Simulated assay, not measured.
Amino acid sequence: MKDFKKQVVVDITESQTIVELSYLLQKYDSEIFILNVSKNHVQEINPKSILGLATLQLKNGTEITVRAVGDDAEEAVMEVTKFLQSAKHTD
């Protein structure tokens, strides 16, 4: 089983919603996690869960770690990365 992770700085547009990210990730078999460490508070959630994403409260400029375990782990992490950095690619 593959394990892949990547550091990401969140940069999303105002039109994006966490629901979209959750739906995008449903096609992956891997277990996916987003780890947010801020102000001595550690939170790791499953972004396939809308409730988990809502509790994460992602803001632009936040550095997070995206990790996945499974056969399509790298593809899943790259999907999350692409979504969370989409504002950088819309010029």
Rank of each mutant, 00 (worst) to 15 (best):
G52V: 02
V42R: 13
A73W: 05
L25M: 06
E31M: 06
L58R: 10
V19N: 14
V37W: 06
E44L: 13
E74M: 10
I45V: 12
L51T: 15
A87G: 06
L56G: 06
A76Q: 03
D72V: 08
Q16Y: 12
S86K: 14
R67G: 09
T65P: 01
V19D: 11
K48R: 12
I34L: 12
Q43W: 00
P47F: 03
L56K: 06
L84S: 06
A87N: 14
K39Q: 07
G52S: 08
Q16A: 07
D71N: 15
Q43M: 08
S30P: 04
A76H: 07
A87Y: 11
K27L: 02
Q57N: 13
L35K: 11
D29T: 14
S30C: 03
G61F: 15
A54H: 15
I32W: 02
P47Q: 04
S86M: 14
L21E: 08
E79D: 15
K59R: 12
L58V: 09
N46K: 04
K27T: 04
N36I: 10
V66E: 01
V42Y: 05
L21I: 01
E63C: 07
N60T: 15
A73N: 03
D71G: 11
Q26N: 07
G61S: 12
S49V: 11
D72P: 13
S38R: 15
Y23P: 00
L84H: 01
I45F: 04
D29Y: 06
I64D: 08
Q43Y: 03
Q43S: 08
P47M: 01
N40C: 04
T55G: 02
L53P: 06
Q85H: 03
L58F: 06
E75H: 04
D72C: 09
E44S: 12
T55R: 08
F33T: 05
N36W: 05
G61Q: 05
I18N: 04
E63L: 05
K82H: 14
V42C: 03
S49W: 15
E20T: 08
V69H: 05
K88E: 09
T81E: 10
A73P: 02
L51H: 13
V77D: 05
E75K: 10
S22Y: 07
T17R: 00
I50M: 13
N46Q: 08
F83N: 00
L24Y: 11
D29W: 00
H41R: 12
D29K: 14
N46C: 10
T17N: 05
D71C: 07
E20H: 09
A87C: 08
E63Y: 09
G52I: 04
A68P: 09
E20S: 12
L56F: 07
N46S: 11
S22F: 02
V19K: 12
D71Q: 11
I18P: 00
I50N: 06
A73M: 07
K27F: 01
S30G: 02
K39A: 06
I34C: 03
F83G: 00
K82A: 07
N40S: 13
S86E: 15
I45T: 07
